[in-house]
């Protein structure tokens, strides 16, 4: 086994544990938002048969954060879901740092490309 592989594995195991913490946190936020949503709107009819699309304040980060600060259940759930979407992005960013430490320029470039694609999807595709 090469030295590279050892340090890859060390970085990966730290990142793996961070991801688990991230997912747990995000799950708690989703659960909290869900509680608020169900307490307030639990008795209203559920309608998902017809596609309407979400209103813009539940699509954009800024609107979601404003709604979450105002303790709106649906906005808090969206915030938790964004945290979930962010966990793999954080993972790729950590991997890039790991490769930079190993001075592996080729893989810094590869992870950089993946990171740009992910950030474009989350921020740029609106």
């Amino acid at each position: 086994m090469t030295g590279n592989e050892w340090s890859d594995r060390r970085v990966e195991s730290i990142v793996g544990n961070l991801l688990r913490v991230g997912v747990t946190l995000a799950g708690c936020v989703v659960l909290a938002g869900g509680m608020i949503f169900l307490v307030r709107h639990g008795t209203q009819p559920a309608h998902y048969r017809v596609f309407l699309g979400e209103p813009s304040d539940l699509r954009r980060l800024r609107g979601i954060i404003h709604g979450a600060i105002a303790l709106r259940g649906r906005a808090i759930i969206q915030l938790g879901l964004i945290m979930l979407i962010a966990t793999p992005i954080a993972r790729v960013a950590f991997a890039m740092f790991g490769f930079a430490e190993e001075k592996d320029r080729m893989y810094v470039l590869f992870t950089g490309i993946v990171l740009v694609i992910l950030l474009y999807s989350l921020v740029g595709s609106a």
Binding site: E54, R59, I77
Partner: peptide, 9 residues
């Protein structure tokens, strides 16, 4: 998410 396909409920 950006296109409004993710419904929180």
């Amino acid at each position: 998410l950006n296109r409004g396909y993710v419904d929180p409920g």
